[in-house]
Design a protein around this nucleic acid. Structure first.
Lengths: 140, 140
DNA sequence: GTGCCACTTCAAGTCGACTTGAGGTCAAGG
DNA sequence: CCTTGACCTCAAGTCGACTTGAAGTGGCAC
């Protein structure tokens, strides 16, 4: 059984050790023991971490992701849930696409002020009516 | 000059009064006076609030939005900035589209476990390599 | 055997955009 | 005149995913 030091897991996964400890505390991952104080992980942890990163990227919360692992540690992923998340993403994508199009129109519009640009006005009304919702700020 | 009570602004804009007070504190909006204790706003505030909502929906922070108003209160919106934000959105959209496609593939895949599904594996590698970043959690 | 230093724990801080709660004020209606 | 209650202020709390800091530990190189 291939074992990895926490530093090695951090290196290979690209995640800081503090995040690994946090994930363990949350019950998302398990260490298989200690070497002195140091956590030691099974090499399979890397696949698990990839799965967690995937879930995060798809927009699941850590708590939601936690429910996607059976007690035996194997992923238990509902196909319906995946499809539902895909639908949700598509909805977000449509909103962002509308926004992007609107911004580009406004950027190219020849009106002296944006307030006089019809496509900008349309965008404004859409935003004011909550047709497009605010998104999280961490994207960079 | 048409004036509105804060409650009226809240009603017409759909924003809670606490948010309006918060925006004023941040310097995003101004009240034109008081009636007793109560803030009173110029009717133009509604357009301003729509502009703020638009900025939020486009992914700008409140601080960024604050810089988009000249001292005279008129919007000062850089077309380049709009185009840049549109590019940013497009990038996000591409990531989300890849994710949505991947999720749908995985949902439809006939492999007994997702771990054996090639498209799921591809998705997993992409997520693990940070090719797709985590997004904010507030989407509804 | 001993010093180094990467690890450990635990509590608290961070970020953004607000919300909430306690305690106070005042215009309007009865 | 007095109650009502919607507004006010200011400080603190919330949410999610971490990060940071202080204080402690122990395996390994010398």
């Amino acid at each position: 059984m291939d074992v990895l030091d926490i530093a090695e897991v951090a290196r290979q996964s690209g995640l800081p050790a503090s995040t690994l400890r946090y994930y363990e505390e949350k019950g998302l991952i398990d260490s298989i023991g200690r070497r002195g104080l140091r956590r030691v992980f099974d090499a399979q942890i890397l696949e698990r971490l990839a799965l967690i990163s995937l879930g995060r990227a798809a927009g699941f919360t850590l708590d939601e992701i936690a429910t996607m692992f059976a007690a035996d540690g194997r992923p238990r992923i509902d196909r319906q849930m995946l499809a539902a998340k895909a639908d949700e993403l598509d909805k977000t994508i449509r909103g962002l696409t509308a926004m992007s199009d609107g911004l580009r129109h406004a950027a190219a519009c020849a009106a002296p002020s944006h307030m006089e640009c019809p496509s900008f006005q349309r965008l404004l009304r859409a935003a004011a009516s909550h047709a497009i919702g605010p998104r999280g700020t961490r994207s960079g």
